[in-house]
Amino acid sequence: MADRAEPLAALQGRINDAAFGGTTLMTVPFVAQVGLRVEPGSAAAGRVETALGLELPEVNRMSESGGRRAIWLAPDEWLVVAADGEERSLVALLEEAIAGEGSVVDLSANRTGLELAGPDARTVLATCCSLDFHPRAFGPGQCAQTLIHKAGVLVEQRGDDRYLLLVRPSFAAYVAEWLLDGMLGLKADAAA
């Protein structure tokens, strides 16, 4: 097939240069993502859990098995995420599992990733996102759909100070600009 375009290619240089004090921003241009709609607790949901080898998580949680993650989006909706290139096999696996009781949609191009990590990652998010990321309120394995100012994002905490943001490609530059600006301000604060 032809080459794919990285949604944030134009900002890559600035994103690379934004790192400070161990806090970094990285693009994750391609992620296999499959939208799953299925009635929770149904036989179809059970078959999905068997097929994926994980329990479909409850509200604002993620569960993981063998490199695949199911991220809660809504009471009957999850985003199943895997390494780039797995989308086709994942769709087939899930289609077979739901057997017509629900919906499986390839959304791999519908969102692109930004990974923010490091000691100031939480504060960077606090410059542009109203959600509470304090360890008492949000921790590894948790996720939320929320806003970075006017753009919707799916935030998943991947480690103690590591966050993956999945964003519609047309909003990715806007979100990146907010994160870059937050990092710029905190970098100046850290230097003072």
Partner: peptide, 13 residues
């Protein structure tokens, strides 16, 4: 650039 999202398609460049 942060005032309002400016959405573009992948063909925009």
């Amino acid at each position: 650039v942060r005032f309002d999202p400016v959405r573009t398609t992948s063909i925009h460049p």
